[in-house]
């Protein structure tokens, strides 16, 4: 396929995504095992532009693995992952890098670079991908991002000097640095007190409304999922048990769904 054909296909895909006719993220029949342990068993999901999908389930059901597969940190055994219509399975590291520039990822434990300050952590993607930016432009952008997550006062602090909730906020600012159109959040409220959890939920909701991204949130916090997601998918033993709105989950007569909602 020549460059003009590829450009045309990309433009067509972009228009379809804007119209809501094509998903930004499409996971098709995904299988993943680690040794003899089957983690994902034929999962299919789709997320449109401006939509947030919460993936729920018990610990160890492969929720985080699904996110790591989506950003290419793991390779699936079978199935495909389409981002903006392009299958990312089998892409080389540098090719995957081009796709990842349009993605933001918040790790479960924030995964901030412990030898860099908060400010330098947020500046990291900009330093590597926006080399045309001057130092002052980069500084302005970093301070804007930190202000957006309410962390401008902690710019000079080291990650070890701030709380878990604050680390997640900084992680979120770093994930948004390149203005992604796909946002993946791995347990954004895990290990936080109810007030911090609520603040993170409000922040995610606000960012989602402002940036209009396609988001996938992995969580086992039903309250958080209900607040920030448009749709919910419940996983059990590597498969999607049910997918729909919270009300639809409540109406379900599937034993596992009822059990999960009862204990959440």
């Amino acid at each position: 396929m020549d460059t003009s054909t590829l450009d045309q296909a990309a433009t067509k895909q972009e228009q379809a995504e804007k119209d809501g006719n094509a998903p930004v993220i499409a996971v098709v029949d995904l299988h993943k095992s680690f040794g003899t342990q089957k983690v994902l068993n034929g999962i299919s999901l789709a997320v449109k532009r401006g939509e947030t999908l919460a993936v729920l389930g018990r610990s160890g059901t492969g929720k985080s693995v699904l996110l790591r597969l989506t950003i290419g940190l793991e390779k699936p055994d079978l199935g495909s992952i389409l981002l903006h219509g392009q299958d990312i399975c089998g892409l080389a590291l540098d090719q995957m890098g081009e796709i990842r520039k349009k993605m933001g990822f918040l790790f479960q434990h924030a995964a901030l670079y412990d030898s860099l300050t908060v400010e330098q952590n947020v500046a990291f993607p900009l330093q590597h991908h926006k080399r045309e930016m001057t130092k002052s432009e980069r500084g302005d952008r970093v301070h804007l991002l930190l202000a957006e997550v309410g962390m401008e006062d902690a710019a000079a602090k080291m990650p070890s000097d701030i709380s878990g909730g604050m680390q997640k906020r900084v992680g979120l600012a770093r994930a948004l640095a390149l203005e992604p159109d796909i946002l993946l959040l791995d347990e954004p409220t895990a290990g936080l007190d109810p007030i911090s959890s609520g603040e993170i939920d409000d922040l995610v909701l606000k960012l989602q409304q402002e940036h209009h991204m396609a988001s996938v949130v992995v969580t086992h916090d039903l309250h958080s999922a209900k607040t920030i997601a448009d749709r919910l998918a419940l996983l059990n033993q590597g498969s999607v048990v049910i997918e729909g709105s919270f009300e639809e989950l409540q109406k379900s007569d599937i034993e596992f769904v009822r059990e999960f909602l009862k204990h959440s």
Binding site: R68, I71, G72, L73, L93, M96, G97, E98, I99, R100, K101, M103, F105, F107, A111, L112, Y113, D114, F124, P125, H128, H129, R174, L178
Partner: peptide
């Protein structure tokens, strides 16, 4: 942190 570097397209 190495995964985070990779996720940042570096």
């Amino acid at each position: 942190q190495i995964d985070a570097i990779e996720a940042s397209a570096v």
